[in-house]
């Protein structure tokens, strides 16, 4: 599997990004910048979708142990 693929962004946005990263340290290219920003946003959207993993029964069982150990 190749490591990189291409997505299209408007040339106006590309110019804007290039202008910005010229003045900002840390990004080597527009691709670097886009990857960084997308990872940040995608991770945020993914965590919003994670359902609560515990049933109320699980929680009660856990609380019993936490009380027995003096944590609650």
């Amino acid at each position: 599997m190749p490591k990189y693929t291409t997505v299209s962004i408007p040339t106006t946005l590309h110019r804007r990004i290039m202008k910005m990263i010229e003045r900002k340290e840390g990004f080597k290219s527009a691709s670097d910048y886009v990857t960084y920003v997308l990872r940040e946003i995608v991770a945020m959207h993914e965590t919003e979708k994670v359902p609560d993993p515990f049933t109320s029964e699980d929680v009660e069982k856990i609380k019993v142990r936490l009380r027995a150990l003096g944590y609650l």
Partner: peptide, 11 residues
């Protein structure tokens, strides 16, 4: 004094 991630999340 060992807790699992499920336990600390509830705690």
């Amino acid at each position: 004094i060992t807790l699992t991630p499920a336990e600390t999340r509830v705690l």
